[in-house]
Design a protein around this nucleic acid. Structure first.
Lengths: 334, 334
DNA sequence: CTGTTAGCGCCTTCAA
DNA sequence: TTGAAGGCGCTAACAG
C-alpha cells in the first residue's frame, strides 16, 4: 500500500486538509503545525500522487516540451535548460517529440494536453512556428512560451538571442582580422534566424565599407551537407573568399570538411567561422571561431517565463558571446 | 469544461463502463457497440485523463527514462528509441535526468515513482549501475530494464551490444589492413564495456598471432580530452603505432585532433578507429573507421522488453555493424 | 456482453 | 487557523 496524505495526517495528528495546506505552501498554517506535518512527511518519506493532485486540483505540476529538431545537441541543451528550471519549481517535464508536418499535429497536441493536463507548454524550433499548434494552444488558453521563434515575435511570449547583432559581431571580427572577401552560408529558409544572421552580415559589411558580393552568399539548410556544398561552390570561385562564415555549426563543420579534403589549411589559408548552437564547435578542428548561442539559458528563461505567466505577453532577449578559438588567427591580405 | 468519459457514454448511448471497456480494448464488447463508442470518441475528440486512469486503475500509461549521461547524442538516441516504442504502445515517456553521485538518489527515484506511478523504468548508463537505484526499484518490485549495463547482467532484464565481438571485429579489420602496432584507448573504468572492448582487442591480436604490447594500451575516460591525452602519449612512443583504436568516438575525435595538430596525415600515416556510439563519427574528418553501436535499437528493444515483462528475467543482445568509412584505407607496413 | 456501485488520493468549497 | 464533506474522471469488483 502506498503512503497517502491520510497516513501523514494521522502521524502528524492533524486533518488531511492541513497536510494538504502544508504541501501546497498555503498561508494560514501555524508554524508549529507546519513543522509537525513536515516531520511526518519526512518520516514517512511521503510523495503526494501527482495523479490525485491533478484530478482534484487546478494544476498538474507538469509541463510539456514540444520539439521536432534533428540536432541532438540542440534538443539536449534545450531540454537541459528547461529541466533545470522545472526542477527548481518542483514540476515534471514531459519531453514530446512531434512531427510538424503531420496532418494531425493540432490534434496530437490537443490530445497530449487533455491526457496529461499539462499546465503549460514550451515550444522549440521548428514547432515554434507550426501554426496549427499555436492556434490549438491559443484556443485552449493554455500558457506557452516559444524559444527562438521564427516569426510573429509580437504575438506570444518568447525568448530569443540577438541574431542580427551576433552575425554583425562575427563579421566585424573577420573584417578586423583583415578579411575582405567573406563567404556567407545562409541558414534554412524556414528559420527567421537565417534572415537575421544574413542581415547582420550585410550590416557589418556596410558599416565597414566592404562591398557586398552576392556571389559570396550561398543558401544552406543548417546541416552538414549543405555547408559542404556551399563551401565547394565558394572555393571554386575564380576569386575565392579568405573566410567563410556559416550560419550554424553543422554547416561550419561541413565547410571545414571540404577545406580538409582540398588540402586547404585552416585557419592559415581560410578562416572558418560559425555559430556554436550545439557545442559541436568544441569537437571539431581546426578550431572554429564561433558565436556562442545561449541555448541552455534560453530554455531556462523560457521555463521561467512560463511559470511567471498570466501577466500578459513578455519577451526576453538574451545576449550571445563571440568566442574566438582559432589561436593562430592573423591578419590576411585580400 | 473538459470532455469526459461520461459525455462519450451519453453520446454513444451506453454506460460509462462500456466506454471504459472500449478505451482499454477489453474483450466482451459487441462489435457494434464498440463501433458506436469509437465514433463518439472521434466525434467528441475525446482523450481520457491520464490522471484519472492512473488514480483509478493499476496502470499509469507512463514510464520513466533515467539518465545521467553527458553525451547529448547518446541520450538523444536512447530517448528516441524508447520514445518510438512508447508511441506504439500509447505510453507517455518521462525523461528524467538524475545525478548518480547524489546522496539522495534512491529517494529521488522513489519520489518520482510515488509521484508519477510510472509503470516501469528504463535505465541508461551510468544509472544502470547505480546500486541505490537498482535496490530501490527491486524493493518496490517495479519493472525495469537496463540498457548496456556495466555489471551484473544476470540479475535483471537488460539489453546490450556484443562489445567483445565488436572490438574483435575492428581489431581484426585493422590487422587485415596490415597494421601490427595498434594503439588502444580504453574506456572509462566504470563501464563494463571498457573491459569488454579491451578484451575483444586482445582476443583479436592473440588469434592473429600479433604480440600484445602493454605500452600500446592507454587508459581513457570516454571523453575528447582523454582521447587526446592518450594519443599524445602513444605518438610520443619511440616506435609509435600505425593505427589507434579508441573505445568510443569522443576519444577517437580526440585522437584525430592530436594527429591534426601534429601534422600527421590520417589515414595515410595513421589509421584511427573508434565506435560510433553517438553519430559523432559522421561529423568528423578525416573519416573514422567505426563500429556502429545500435543505440537507438537498443533503446527501442529495452522498451519492448519492459512492456513484455512479468515473465521473468530476459536479455537481448544486439548486433553491431562494422562501418569502414576511411575511403583511402590501404595496407600499411609495420 | 453490459451496467452498477465503490472508491483511487487529493483539492475545493464551505463552515467552524 | 483548522476541519468536514464532496467530487475530480476513471477503473475494479461485482452483479446481471
Amino acid at each position: 500500500m502506498r503512503t497517502t496524505i491520510k497516513d501523514v495526517s494521522i502521524a502528524a495528528g492533524v486533518s488531511i486538509k492541513t497536510v494538504s495546506r502544508v504541501l501546497n505552501k498555503e498561508k494560514y498554517v501555524k508554524e508549529e503545525t507546519r513543522k509537525k506535518v513536515e516531520e511526518a512527511v519526512a518520516a514517512l518519506n511521503f510523495s503526494p500522487s501527482l495523479a490525485a493532485r491533478t484530478l482534484a486540483g487546478r494544476r498538474s505540476f507538469q509541463i510539456a516540451l514540444l520539439y521536432d529538431n534533428h540536432s541532438p545537441y540542440y534538443i539536449h541543451q534545450i531540454q537541459d535548460g528547461v529541466w533545470g528550471r522545472c526542477r527548481e519549481q518542483g514540476v515534471r517535464l514531459l519531453a514530446q517529440p512531434t512531427d510538424v508536418d503531420s496532418a494531425t499535429l493540432a490534434q496530437d497536441v490537443g490530445g497530449l494536453i487533455d491526457e496529461t493536463h499539462v499546465d503549460g507548454v514550451i515550444l522549440s524550433s521548428p514547432v515554434t512556428d507550426a501554426a496549427p499548434v499555436l492556434e490549438e494552444l491559443e484556443r485552449r488558453g493554455i500558457p506557452f512560451v516559444r524559444i527562438s521563434p521564427g516569426t510573429n515575435h509580437a504575438l506570444t511570449s518568447s525568448v530569443f538571442m540577438d541574431d542580427v547583432q551576433a552575425a554583425d559581431d562575427m563579421t566585424t571580427h573577420l573584417i578586423n582580422e583583415g578579411h575582405r572577401r567573406i563567404g556567407f552560408v545562409v541558414g534554412h529558409p524556414n528559420h527567421m534566424a537565417s534572415d537575421q544572421r544574413l542581415f547582420g552580415y550585410r550590416r557589418a559589411l556596410d558599416r565597414a565599407g566592404v562591398p557586398f558580393e552576392p556571389n559570396l552568399v550561398r543558401q544552406g539548410a543548417f546541416d552538414f551537407a549543405s555547408g559542404a556544398d556551399a563551401a565547394e561552390t565558394l572555393l571554386d570561385l575564380p576569386e575565392p573568399p579568405s573566410a567563410i562564415f556559416a550560419s550554424n555549426d553543422d554547416m561550419a563543420a561541413g565547410v571545414l570538411a571540404v577545406a580538409h579534403r582540398r588540402g586547404i589549411a585552416v585557419p592559415d589559408d581560410l578562416s572558418v567561422a560559425g555559430f556554436d548552437d550545439t557545442d559541436l564547435a568544441q569537437l571539431v578542428w581546426p578550431p572554429l571561431t564561433t558565436i556562442r548561442q545561449p541555448t541552455r539559458e534560453l530554455a531556462y528563461t523560457a521555463a521561467s517565463l512560463l511559470f511567471a505567466m498570466g501577466d500578459g505577453v513578455e519577451h526576453r532577449r538574451l545576449q550571445h558571446d563571440l568566442v574566438v578559438r582559432s589561436s593562430t588567427a592573423r591578419r590576411k591580405g585580400r
